[in-house]
């Protein structure tokens, strides 16, 4: 019983120590480890379908199967190995509210 208590204590004690010191090390030496938040560039997700606690395997396997259509994948895209270039045309207004997106 003492052995079990010791093993549990080592797991909890050293585990907690590792978590604490990993956080301190991250704050001390891993400086600037963050990227821009999604809210800087986007308004969030617009959900078209949502279902909680899918009832059975069939529902799980079939959810959203037809959501990405052939039209979504078929589009006129520049060749993969061509250098990226800016369009000569003026950028189109896509109707996205920039102020709303940027908050």
């Amino acid at each position: 019983m003492d052995i079990l208590a010791m093993l549990l204590a080592i797991g909890l004690g050293f585990g907690l120590a590792c978590l604490i010191f990993a956080s301190i090390l991250s704050k001390s030496n891993d400086i600037g480890n963050s990227i821009g938040e999604a809210s800087k560039y986007s308004n969030g997700i617009y959900y078209d379908q949502s279902a909680d606690k899918l009832k059975n395997n069939t529902a799980v396997e079939n959810f959203g199967l037809s959501y990405i259509t052939k039209d979504d994948r078929l589009r006129d895209i520049p060749p993969t190995d061509r250098k990226v270039e800016q369009s000569a045309e003026e950028p189109r207004d896509l109707g996205w509210n920039v102020d709303q997106i940027r908050g």
């Binding site: 560039y41 986007s42 959900y47 078209d48 379908q49 606690k53 899918l54 996205w96």
Partner: peptide
């Protein structure tokens, strides 16, 4: 538990 979500996320100036 399994939950399904299908949606679109638009990005500007990424």
């Amino acid at each position: 538990y399994y939950h399904g979500r299908a949606g679109r996320m638009m990005f500007k100036d990424l």
